[in-house]
Amino acid sequence: MFETENGYMLVGITNGNFPDYESVIPNYNSYIKIKKEALLKAVKRTSIINEITRIITTH
């Protein structure tokens, strides 16, 4: 769980069949660059969708 003064994000394991991670993730060090604002906006959108889903499923 990630928590801030504005809310929290709960992360869990999803059951299912998934590809072998070793064939999907490169075996060398790699880095990405992302603008801080772009990441924050994406997380905010995810939070909004999560809130809407919570409201729908609890009513």
Score class of each variant (00 low, 15 high):
Glu5Ser: 14
Thr4Glu: 01
Glu3Leu: 08
Met9Lys: 05
Asn50Trp: 04
Ile34Val: 14
His59Phe: 02
Asn27Asp: 14
Val11Trp: 08
Asn15Glu: 15
Ile56Asp: 10
Pro19Lys: 08
Asn6Cys: 10
Gly12Asn: 13
Glu37Asn: 14
Glu22Cys: 02
Thr14Val: 12
Gly7Gln: 06
Ile25Trp: 11
Arg54Leu: 03
Pro26Trp: 04
Lys36Arg: 15
His59Gly: 05
Ser30Glu: 06
Tyr21Ser: 09
Tyr31Gly: 03
Tyr8Pro: 00
Lys33Met: 08
Ile34Cys: 03
Leu10Gly: 01
Thr57Gly: 02
Gly7Ser: 08
Leu40Tyr: 05
Asp20Lys: 09
Ile52His: 03
Val11His: 05
Ile48His: 06
Ser23His: 03
Thr58Asn: 09
Tyr8Cys: 02
Ile32Leu: 02
Lys35Ile: 08
Ala42Thr: 13
Arg54Cys: 00
Asn17Trp: 11
Asn50Pro: 00
Asn17Gly: 09
Thr14Glu: 15
Asn50Ile: 06
Asn29Gly: 03
Pro19Ser: 12
Lys41Thr: 02
Ile13Phe: 09
Pro26Met: 06
Lys41Glu: 13
Ile13Ala: 06
Gly7Ile: 09
Tyr8Ser: 09
Lys41Ile: 01
Ser47Pro: 00
Ser23Asn: 11
Asn17Ala: 14
Ile32Arg: 08
Ala42Arg: 05
Val43Met: 08
Glu5Lys: 14
Ile55Lys: 04
Ile25Arg: 09
Pro19Gly: 09
Tyr8Lys: 03
Lys36Asp: 01
Asp20Cys: 05
Ile25Lys: 10
Phe18Glu: 10
Ile52Trp: 03
Gly12Cys: 07
Ile32His: 03
Arg54Ala: 04
Ile48Met: 10
Leu10Ile: 08
Ala38Cys: 01
Tyr8Gly: 02
Thr46Met: 14
Leu10Ala: 06
Asn29Asp: 15
Gly7Leu: 08
Ile49Gln: 07
Asn29Val: 01
Asn29Lys: 01
Pro19Gln: 11
Lys36Asn: 06
Glu22Gly: 05
Ile32Phe: 05
Tyr28Asn: 13
Leu40Arg: 00
Ile55Asp: 00
